[in-house]
Simulated scan of single mutants.
Amino acid sequence: MGARVVDPLFEEALRLGDSCLVLAQRLSAWCGKAPILEEDIAVANVALDLIGQAQMWLGLAGEIEGRGRTPDDLAYKRDAGDFRNVLLVERPNGDFGQTLMRQYLFDAWHLPMLQALQRSSDARVAAIAEKAGKEVAYHLHRSRDLVIRLGDGSQESHRRMQAALDDLWPYTGELTHADAIEEELAASGVGADLAAIAAAYEAETASTLAQATLVLPKSGFMHKGGKTGVHTEHLGYLLAEMQFLQRAYPGATW
């Protein structure tokens, strides 16, 4: 039998939806545990926004696939190797500085990505990107402000934010590195030009990190694999918790 032909837009919808879903699951772990009440509420609201975005992208993926799978099916009934999220979002929460830095590094990519997708030749993609972009503009405003305030804050807050940047920066490479699927979508006008996204990402992070008095790691090494289903062990543990109910009681409803 020949290899299964993969629709590039199906893959891209999974990448966008899975990244939002996994990050939302990470953020939800802070509910009731954040350092202050305001942040507890803010983080929970960002997680809810991302869940809504994941539902839209996974709904599009299911529509393209044409096998009758719903967003819930794609969220709860796939194994880790079938997920297409970027590696950055599956990194553990760590301390609150680690969580904020992960959020900022994702937001700084997410907003220009959605802005580019608003010009997609596929009306479904453009509509989802327009709706999600309004929410993500707030996400970036918030995470950028906190990274600057904590990076350029006390000696201890600076130390924690620098440690978080050192740990997470090597997981940002695949955000802006285009593979054959993304190149095909960009050429057809459906997807975004990741070279342009990379330029916007570099400008945003350079400006913000300079204001935060934080320094990028000198090593240029970047991890990759998440977009093709090669993940760290952390995703398996996250999915075991997130998918438990549907795995233990298939088809359970409220």
Rank of each mutant, 00 (worst) to 15 (best):
R4H: 08
V5R: 13
V5P: 07
E12T: 01
A13W: 01
R15M: 04
R15E: 07
S19H: 07
A24I: 04
Q25F: 12
A29H: 10
P35W: 03
D40C: 09
N45L: 09
V46R: 11
A47L: 11
G52Q: 13
G52R: 12
Q53G: 12
Q55D: 15
L60S: 03
G62Q: 00
E63N: 06
R69N: 08
P71Q: 08
D72M: 09
L74I: 08
F83W: 14
L87A: 06
V89N: 04
P92N: 11
N93R: 13
N93S: 15
F96A: 05
Q98L: 02
T99V: 13
R102E: 00
F106Y: 13
A108M: 07
H110V: 00
H110L: 01
A116I: 01
L117F: 00
Q118C: 15
Q118H: 04
S121G: 14
D122A: 09
A126I: 04
A126C: 05
G133H: 05
H139N: 09
L140G: 04
H141V: 03
R142L: 07
D145R: 15
V147Q: 03
I148Q: 12
I148H: 04
R149A: 15
G153I: 05
S154L: 07
Q155M: 04
E156L: 12
A164W: 00
A164L: 06
L165C: 05
D166W: 01
T172V: 14
A178D: 10
D179R: 08
I181V: 14
E183D: 12
A192R: 02
A200D: 13
A200N: 06
A203S: 14
S207N: 11
S207T: 14
L214P: 04
P217S: 07
P217Q: 08
S219L: 03
G225D: 11
G226S: 07
G226T: 03
L235R: 07
L238E: 12
A240Q: 15
Q246M: 11
Q246T: 08
Y249W: 14
W254D: 12
